[in-house]
């Protein structure tokens, strides 16, 4: 147990190291571009450029440059944005992280509960009109671009019908920290996370439906019925037990990539100061240190979330614990 945990942690560190090298190489070791000028931003004075060159060691060999960069990013955490007038980059990212985390947690809650209800209902009532309706709705949800949906939601709840009783409660765009007002936090996140969840509900309901229907054909389900188990027990206890493995692995991937900035469009549309919006701003102003920081942050989150899902997987299926299914 401890050994597998240690080897898992080692793998994670290796992956993060690999990503950091790759990201560094893309930004700073691309031939034909002077990283100093890029960090300094457009129209920087020669003095600033010279200072940056000395500070980041751009006159030294690449490994030294890499070490300096990582030191600034993870150890001294004083990587500074020059575009944004000396703003420290790492605290900025750490400030944005809880916003993204809250948004994605809410969205995950919505999409898991929504897809469980729709997926199970569609599987139980397969080939009926309910099933067909739910699957068409799922397809619609799946194919609606989140930025468009977000704008429509904003239009309806913020301006058109904002003053009707339906949407009077909707707070203005933006984020309210949990520590400031839990109720305000929930209200501010409700619509953005629901919007983000819509396409996932569609996708996950479809996946769950087909997995569940496959599982119901298994011999072990026949055994469950032969034992005298009722339909509710057979579907929810035995059927789900067999079919949620691919659901969980899919969830892990999506959850991680959303945490790592994948909720960019939603955050921009709803003016949530999260990691995605930070990345968006950094890209718009070509703020290299900030981009570097957000990318590394995203990588770390994806790797951690993947490890957690692997652990969950092993809890759910004893066969995986013994490595019977291969990697």
């Amino acid at each position: 147990m401890i050994r597998s945990f240690a080897s898992r942690t080692g793998q994670m560190l290796l992956v993060i190291f690999g990503i950091s090298v790759l990201v560094f190489a893309i930004f700073f070791a691309t031939p034909g571009a002077d990283p100093t000028a890029r960090i300094a931003g457009r129209g920087a004075s020669p003095q600033v450029v010279a200072r940056i060159r000395a500070e980041y060691g751009f006159d030294r060999p690449l490994p030294a440059q890499y070490a300096t960069m990582m030191q600034k990013l993870f150890v001294s955490r004083d990587l500074t944005s020059f575009v944004n007038h000396g703003q420290r980059v790492v605290p900025e990212v750490l400030q944005a992280a809880p916003v993204t985390l809250s948004l994605v947690l809410w969205a995950a809650f919505f999409w898991v509960s929504g897809s469980l209800v729709f997926g199970i209902a569609a599987a139980v009532l397969r080939d009926s009109w309910v099933d067909r309706l739910l699957m068409v709705l799922g397809l619609i949800g799946l194919s609606m671009p989140v930025f468009w949906l977000g704008e429509v939601v904003n239009l309806v709840t913020q301006s058109r019908w904002h003053d009707t009783f339906l949407f009077r409660w909707v707070p203005p765009l933006g984020y309210v920290p949990f520590s400031q007002s839990p109720w305000g936090w929930a209200k501010a996140l409700f619509l953005p996370s629901l919007t983000l969840a819509v396409c996932f509900i569609g996708l996950y309901a479809r996946v769950l439906r087909s997995e569940l229907l496959t599982a119901m054909g298994e011999d072990s389900i026949r055994t469950a019925r032969a034992k005298g188990a009722g339909p509710v027990r057979v579907w929810l206890w035995h059927g789900l037990r067999l079919s949620w493995l691919s659901y969980v692995s899919l969830f892990g991937l999506d959850f991680a990539q959303l945490l790592g900035g994948g909720a960019l469009l939603t955050e921009v549309v709803f003016a949530m100061p999260g990691v995605g919006r930070l990345t968006y701003q950094a890209l718009a102003t070509l703020d290299l240190p900030l981009i570097m920081a957000t990318v590394m942050y995203a990588a770390v989150f994806v790797v951690i979330a993947n490890a957690l899902v692997d652990g969950l997987y092993a809890l759910l299926d004893p066969r995986i614990r013994e490595g019977r299914h291969g990697r």
Partner: peptide, 24 residues
């Protein structure tokens, strides 16, 4: 349902697939 498992019970061909693989 009350009869299945209690009054009459069934043994299947392949006990590997007949048991749920994810529970003891």
């Amino acid at each position: 349902r009350r009869l299945r498992g209690a009054g009459m019970a069934m043994i299947f061909q392949d006990p590997m697939t007949a048991f749920l693989p994810v529970r003891s």
